[in-house]
Every structure is written in C-alpha cells, then in structure tokens.
Amino acid sequence: MKTFKIDVALLIVFLTGLAYGTTYIYQFFFLHYYHLPAMFIDLNTNILTGTLFPLILLITAILMYIGFIMVIVKGKGSFFESKKLWTIPLGACFIALGGAWIVGGTYPEKKEEYMVIKQNKELFVVITSYKDNLVIAPT
C-alpha cells in the first residue's frame, strides 16, 4: 500500500481556510438571525483564534482516534495507508462547517445576556461589534 504524506504547510493552510470558513458561516447565520447584512461580518485574529484552536484540537483528536482504532483492528499499519479512511477527516470538516451553521443560527435564540445601552431615553442591546463600532438593536 502507498503511504500518503502531507506537508505541514499544506495542513496549516487547510486548517486556516477551514477556520475562516467556519467563522464566516457562524457569523453569517448569527447576524442573519437579527436580519443584519453580511457586511457586518468582521473576520479578525481575535475571532479566528477562537475558531482555529478548537478545530485543530478536533481534527487532531479524530486523527489520533482513527490511528488508534487502526492499530487495534489491523494490529499494525497507519491511518495514512488507506484511501477510504480519508473520508472520515473530510466528514469531520463538513461536520465542523455544519456545526458552525447550526450554532450560528441557534445561539442567538438562547442568548439571554446582552450589553444594554441607554441612548436618548431608549434602551438598545448590543448585538455585535464591527470594527470600532457597536451594532445595536432596540429592545
């Protein structure tokens, strides 16, 4: 069997793209709940760090788990020796993107604590921040 080798640089590029994708999808559906346009999506390093770190942990855990199962089932070998097993990490990526979609759409429904701003005797809640501004909505 042929062994697949992946350069670490390609893996970093892939995970970064996956982090941008999941962050964008999460932000898009979060803002969509409040009927805000996608122009308020702000992808910065603070937001991406919160997405990239759990993705790296998730994919690493999946690969380690599959490698452990392969050792138990085959008694030897490597995860990278089978072409069919690559569908599992690919599925994990789709699960991550789908999870961002679901969480981004359902999180605002369950959110109970908002920052409240009083302006001209009216109360507004802060939905998100965009660059150096706050996006607010009436209560």
Rank of each mutant, 00 (worst) to 15 (best):
V71E: 14
D42S: 09
W86G: 11
V8P: 04
I25A: 03
Y34R: 03
M115R: 12
G75C: 08
F68V: 02
T87C: 05
Y26A: 04
L48I: 11
N44E: 11
G91F: 08
G98H: 06
L63F: 08
Y65D: 03
L63M: 13
V73Q: 09
T87I: 15
P138G: 07
G99H: 02
L43S: 07
V13G: 01
I66E: 11
D132W: 00
I117D: 03
L36C: 01
T128D: 15
V73I: 15
L57M: 13
G50F: 10
Y107W: 10
I95R: 02
I41F: 05
L123M: 13
F53G: 04
Y24Q: 06
N44Y: 10
I102V: 15
M70A: 11
L85I: 12
I59H: 06
F94R: 06
L36G: 00
F124C: 02
I47S: 12
D42I: 01
C93T: 11
K118S: 14
H32F: 13
I6A: 09
I95D: 06
I56W: 05
I117T: 06
M39E: 14
A100Y: 04
I102G: 05
T128H: 06
L11S: 13
E113H: 11
I62D: 03
T3K: 15
L43E: 05
K74S: 12
A61V: 10
I95W: 00
K5T: 09
L36H: 06
G105P: 01
S82I: 06
I62W: 03
F40W: 10
I102F: 15
V103H: 03
D7T: 04
T139E: 08
Y26S: 06
F40C: 07
T3G: 05
W86V: 09
E109F: 11
I62R: 02
K111E: 13
Q119R: 12
F14P: 01
L90D: 07
A92E: 03
M70R: 15
W86E: 09
N44A: 09
D42H: 14
K84D: 12
N46M: 13
I127R: 00
L11W: 05
E122D: 12
I41E: 01
L11Q: 14
V125A: 00
F14L: 15
M70H: 12
P37H: 08
V116S: 14
K83C: 01
G99C: 01
I41M: 12
L134I: 09
D42L: 06
N120C: 07
I6T: 09
V126D: 02
L97K: 00
I127N: 00
C93H: 03
I41D: 08
L63I: 13
N44C: 05
Y107P: 01
V116P: 04
F53L: 15
T3Q: 14
L31R: 00
T23M: 04
A92S: 15
K118P: 01
V8Q: 13
L55Q: 03
V126P: 05
G99L: 06
L48N: 06
